[in-house]
Design a protein around this nucleic acid. Structure first.
Lengths: 229, 229
DNA sequence: TGTATCGGATACAGATCTGTATCCAATACT
DNA sequence: AGTATTGGATACAGATCTGTATCCGATACA
């Protein structure tokens, strides 16, 4: 009796579901679910958030969720991959803007660094920072996600690196340490600032990035430093 | 029928349970439960770990758990408070050892910094780091824990600060930036190194701390630097 | 305009999980 | 030795949560 109904609807989609045809509407639903998940994860933690909560926040039913993602871990994976693309795009547009404007002084350098660092799992508001870190920690707990997450990190670090190089040249400065080390120090410093900000925004002073940049740079020999060249 | 049994056992303990008398045995049980929780949290996340799992890992039943903690959040609170004490003790003993041995060169400085930084939610193995960060993030998600966690952080930062001050004097060096900034940079750098280590230990090079120290210190004017004074 | 397909909603079964209410054994006190 | 008390184990009821199987409305194609 029940077998009669099992004719085509799911059977067909199962055939195609190996590589689901993501139409525009489907993509939009996925988008909304992922956006809602970020919020809910920040509130409840990745493992503490129920699929129900995520769907409710997105204005969908669980049916919609399971029609778009196999399970929670598939959602998380998609979110990490999405992060990589999003942050990359954000960083690139930020650079483009700053480069085009031809900023050159130290304060702008800090801004550049800040923009560049946005991608490193540490972003704007405290809630977003928490959400990002939930994702990071979830990835850390699951070895199968290590490579994917490192790919994301590398994307961001490379972005920071090229930003620093270009930014310093524009500012007429050069590094006194290796660029890789510089990137790591900037990333760590930003991470620490964001950590503090999660608990008390007043305890996070971005000028620390300026202090750091001051200690690891010097006027570029022969180029056009502030008033020397 | 069932009411007959409800005579005294819990009734008495309820009276006293307002301020439970923590005997030695009780303390040991709490200890084991907290230790087990650290492991389980690292695996499953604070919200993802069931009380059952924690108890099983500790070799107890859920009855033992609820006899010692009101609920999961009470356990987490106790763990954070415990962290503060543990890390403080660890750092102090580390300092005592190093100071007593009279270490003075740059490499030892790095070691000092490392020891001092152990407390900042970023510790030895990758699993412990993950567990510590789970705790941190849980605290970040719960405003009622913010002050408690900041107390822990301040304890650690103050510890690092005095270690740095003493360590540098012993090494005949002085800071080129404020000590608070120096502490923040060291903390952030360590945090970044531990982040990398969570995903791939080969990508975490502690010598970065030495590089950082090198850029923010110089031989102490007039004191006894390496070969100058 | 009619039909096929797709996207999301609903219903349901099984599996956990939490917190409480009892219960029993070992320790401590006398 | 005998009793009081404490610490931990067991049993249970209610509440979720997950994943699947089915169903329905809307869009697209003809």
């Amino acid at each position: 009796m029940t077998e009669i109904a099992r004719e085509t609807p799911t059977a067909m989609s199962t055939d195609a579901a190996t590589e689901p045809p993501i139409t525009a509407r489907r993509a939009q639903t996925r988008e909304r679910l992922m956006a809602a998940a970020r919020t809910v994860f920040a509130d409840r933690g990745v493992e503490g958030a129920s699929v129900e909560e995520i769907c409710e926040a997105a204005g969908f039913s669980r049916g919609a969720f399971y029609s778009n993602f196999g399970d929670r871990s598939e959602l998380v994976l998609a979110m990490i991959q999405q992060s990589s693309l999003m942050q990359l795009a954000a960083a690139q547009s930020a650079v483009a803007t700053m480069m085009a404007a031809g900023h050159k002084d130290a304060d702008e350098l800090v801004s550049i660094a800040l923009y560049a660092l946005e991608g490193l799992g540490v972003t704007r508001s405290a809630d977003e920072t928490i959400g990002d870190r939930e994702l990071m920690l979830h990835a850390a707990r699951h070895p199968e996600l290590h490579q994917t997450y490192l790919g994301f990190v590398d994307t961001c670090l490379a972005q920071v690196e090229s930003l620093i190089i270009d930014g310093l040249r524009h500012a007429g400065l050069e590094l006194t340490i290796g660029v890789r080390d510089a990137v790591a120090l900037l990333a760590g410093t930003h991470q620490h600032l964001q950590t503090m900000a999660m608990f008390d925004s007043r305890r996070s002073d971005p000028s620390l990035l300026g202090t750091l940049l001051g200690t690891i740079t010097r006027p570029h020999a022969g180029s056009r430093p502030y008033g020397v060249g």
